[in-house]
Amino acid sequence: MTGFTGVRIVDSADVSPDASVGAGSSIWHLAQVREQAQLGENCIVGRGAYIGTGVVMGDNCKVQNYALVYEPAKLGDGVFIGPAVVLTNDTYPRAINPDGTIKSAHDWEPVGVTIERGAAVGARATCVAPVTIGAWATVAAGAVVVKDVPPYALVAGVPARRIAWVGESGVPLKAGDADGLWICPASGDRYIETDGNLSKESL
């Protein structure tokens, strides 16, 4: 495909010439990237994935096979979207209006899901707009997210609830020897919990 510099787009992918795709990105078989979508550098869009009109993705994002990222979703740098994930965009979905006419684009207002830096959404999870997934949070496979997820939270279930904290390595944190202290067993990084929120301890 022409018009994109330093980008790998396989022949069966459908990428709008009005989209913006950063250098080093790859778009695989049967994926669709719609008009005005903005993909950063080094992004991967897997087989059969859908990136809606005007969706914004930061650098180093990975959207796995058959995920559906509907506009106007916004993904920060380094976001992971697992296979068959759905980011919705219609709070009150209907195919028709009360008078029986088919709804058009003018009959509803799309609302988006926001996913902040480094967060991950597991396979077949659904995020119901409008919600925000905080930085470095993890949504477990199959979860249904209907309210905002704080940074570093691990949420699971239907509806999704926080079951643990995770660090930037993605590994569940262990309680430290002081109240409110959490430690990453993978990296040794320390985190402080205050009023139900977690922040990384500054060095």
Score class of each variant (00 low, 15 high):
5 T>D: 14
8 R>F: 02
8 R>A: 00
10 V>K: 00
11 D>F: 07
13 A>I: 06
15 V>S: 03
16 S>V: 05
20 S>E: 03
21 V>T: 09
23 A>E: 14
23 A>C: 04
24 G>A: 05
24 G>T: 08
27 I>E: 02
30 L>R: 03
30 L>W: 10
31 A>K: 01
36 Q>P: 01
37 A>D: 08
37 A>L: 09
39 L>F: 07
45 V>F: 12
47 R>L: 12
48 G>Y: 09
48 G>S: 05
50 Y>P: 02
52 G>R: 04
57 M>P: 12
60 N>V: 10
66 Y>V: 11
66 Y>T: 13
66 Y>G: 04
68 L>V: 15
69 V>G: 03
71 E>M: 06
71 E>Y: 07
75 L>A: 08
77 D>F: 10
80 F>Y: 09
82 G>A: 08
82 G>I: 08
83 P>V: 14
83 P>I: 15
83 P>N: 15
86 V>S: 11
89 N>C: 12
90 D>P: 07
92 Y>W: 14
92 Y>I: 12
96 I>N: 15
96 I>W: 14
97 N>A: 11
99 D>W: 12
104 S>M: 05
105 A>W: 11
106 H>M: 13
108 W>D: 08
109 E>T: 13
110 P>K: 07
111 V>N: 12
112 G>S: 11
116 E>G: 04
116 E>C: 08
118 G>N: 13
121 V>K: 04
125 A>L: 05
129 A>W: 03
134 G>I: 05
134 G>V: 10
134 G>C: 04
137 A>R: 07
140 A>P: 01
150 P>M: 09
151 P>E: 14
152 Y>A: 01
153 A>S: 07
155 V>P: 02
156 A>M: 14
156 A>S: 15
158 V>A: 09
159 P>N: 08
164 A>T: 10
165 W>K: 02
167 G>Y: 07
168 E>A: 00
168 E>K: 00
169 S>G: 01
171 V>F: 08
172 P>A: 08
173 L>H: 02
174 K>P: 00
176 G>Y: 01
180 G>Q: 02
182 W>M: 01
183 I>H: 01
186 A>R: 01
192 I>G: 01
192 I>N: 03
196 G>D: 13
197 N>Q: 10
202 S>D: 12
